[in-house]
Simulated scan of single mutants.
Amino acid sequence: MKDVMGMMKQVQAMQAKMQSLQAELEQTEVEGVAGGGLVKVRLTAKGEMKAVDIDASLLKAEEKEIVEDLVLAAHNDARGRADRLTQEKMGSITAGLPIPPGMKLPF
């Protein structure tokens, strides 16, 4: 019984830390870049797009498809950074808990 109570306390502490992490991730921003820095996208770590910056040299009608591809690439770069940041922070919260490998916790 003692182990179960100890585990319950750990789970409650983890829940509190996860709520705090959720709030932190909503405020943390990451930047993705593409085209050697000609296109930049800024997202929250939760995936909300905050800004897009496109270098003026790309704003030509004949460059439309290139710009679209670069915006997509920059967004994907930022999303990847946000996912890695989230995983790092979650790892520090769940360290020491007997969570089965491959189990994903809701963010």
Rank of each mutant, 00 (worst) to 15 (best):
M1T: 11
K2L: 12
D3R: 13
M5L: 15
M7I: 12
M8F: 10
K9H: 03
Q10C: 04
Q10E: 13
V11Y: 05
Q12T: 07
A13I: 08
M14Y: 01
K17T: 01
Q19L: 12
S20C: 04
S20G: 15
L21Q: 09
L21K: 09
Q22Y: 06
T28L: 14
V30R: 02
V30L: 14
E31K: 14
A34W: 01
A34V: 08
G35M: 10
G35H: 07
G35C: 08
G35I: 05
G36F: 07
G37I: 09
K40M: 06
T44C: 07
T44P: 02
A45I: 03
K46L: 14
E48R: 10
K50M: 13
K50P: 01
A51F: 03
I54C: 04
A56N: 11
S57I: 10
S57C: 10
L59F: 08
L59S: 06
K60G: 04
A61F: 04
A61L: 13
K64H: 06
K64M: 11
E65G: 01
E65R: 09
E65K: 13
A74S: 08
D77A: 12
R79F: 09
G80E: 14
G80C: 08
R81M: 10
L85P: 00
T86C: 10
T86D: 00
E88P: 01
K89Q: 15
M90W: 01
G91E: 11
G91P: 03
S92H: 14
G96V: 12
G96Y: 05
I99W: 05
I99Q: 06
P100I: 11
P100G: 07
P100C: 09
P101V: 11
M103Y: 11
M103N: 02
